[in-house]
């Protein structure tokens, strides 16, 4: 474990140089301008931490905890509005287990800073022993209100009027019924859904399960697509599927001439997916062209990321290779 990472003179949120802790922008968006330091005292092995742990199988041995600010310090709290993710010391379930925090942080900063994608406010944070963690604000309110967010696994197959979806075989297109039923501004929701799926694929995220696709209530009481979250280049840690949904993007997506020729997804399948979602060609082309155009800026941001060179190289490889396919 690299215990010197937290001494890097770089903001552990924005990745901008020249800061010994969070810069004002990160403090504002993540902590409402409260003076939070990027090092947490103590260790996550204590009983109070275990009470705040979220049960459930997470990628790569990650453990998720609910955290709240107490006197400007992140502390475990069962109703905390932040999610903190760490990998325990004894984890050996994947390659580079401790680098998952830096990987996820980079991917979300890439989405936000280079591509302007709505993401959960997030940053790196460290325990005193150097253990890196990832912190993000999922809930706006503290104590959290559970009905603020709901995930697709809870919403699928809720309405008899919609075709039943087999959750073991679903494609991303099958989830459109959830958006149509629950999101009043459904076209905006579908564009965001498309962008998030596409971005996840671009950074080789193979862990976008249905429970990680969420909706959030708007001030008017309807739902909108939850900001991008839970995205990292999982290929840096384990081999996984190119598209997480077992049914792919849509039924028949592997029957295109391009997929048959290359054996993997290309721009063509994503264009078809967008068209099925009802997104016009001009918009889907713009979204994909925008991703392609960010290549250099993405490379510069990756240089700043809190991950070692060997992990950066893996992320860079997949990212550039998939960008080529989007051209």
């Amino acid at each position: 474990m690299n215990r010197t990472l937290y001494n890097t003179p770089r903001c552990p949120g924005s990745l901008k140089d020249g800061f010994n802790s969070y810069n004002p922008g990160t403090l504002r968006t993540l902590f409402d301008s409260r003076k939070v330091f990027h090092i947490i005292e103590g260790s996550p092995d204590t009983a109070s931490w275990q009470k705040a742990r979220i049960e459930g199988e997470q990628f790569g041995g990650q453990q998720w905890y609910r955290v709240a600010l107490h006197k400007n310090k992140p502390e475990p709290h069962p109703a905390g509005n932040y999610i903190l993710k760490i990998v325990p010391d004894d984890s050996d379930s994947v390659k580079f287990p401790f680098e998952q925090a830096g990987n996820e942080h980079f991917c979300l900063q890439l989405a936000k800073q280079v591509y302007g994608i709505d993401t959960v406010p997030n940053a790196m944070i460290f325990f005193e022993n150097g253990q890196p963690a990832f912190i993000a604000r999922y809930y706006n309110n503290f104590p959290l209100s559970e009905d603020e967010i709901t995930d697709f696994s809870q919403l699928i197959n809720q309405h008899e009027t919609q075709p039943h979806v087999d959750i073991d075989k679903f494609s991303y297109y099958d989830l459109v019924a959830v958006i149509n039923e629950n999101v009043a501004a459904s076209l905006i929701g579908k564009e965001r859904f498309f962008t998030n799926i596409l971005f996840g694929w671009l950074v080789a995220n193979g862990h976008a399960y249905m429970k990680n696709i969420r909706l959030r209530k708007t001030p008017l009481g309807d739902y909108t697509i939850f900001p991008l979250a839970d995205i990292l280049c999982t290929r840096a840690h384990a081999i996984g599927p190119e598209i997480t949904a077992p049914g792919g993007l849509y039924q028949g997506d592997k029957n295109t001439p391009e997929f048959r020729e290359y054996g993997h997804y290309t721009r063509n399948e994503f264009s078809n997916f967008a068209m099925r979602l009802g997104i016009n060609r001009k918009r889907s082309d713009k979204i994909m062209d925008h991703l392609v155009a960010g290549r250099n800026a993405a490379g510069k941001l990756l240089d700043q990321a809190f991950v070692p060179e060997e992990v950066k190289n893996i992320i860079r490889y997949y990212f550039n290779e998939r960008l080529m396919r989007l051209k």
């Binding site: 709505d118 905006i188 708007t218 001030p219 918009r283």
Partner: peptide
């Protein structure tokens, strides 16, 4: 609230 730019709404 929906975090969409005027330009995107126009398109």
């Amino acid at each position: 609230d929906l975090k969409i730019k005027q330009e995107d709404l126009s398109e």
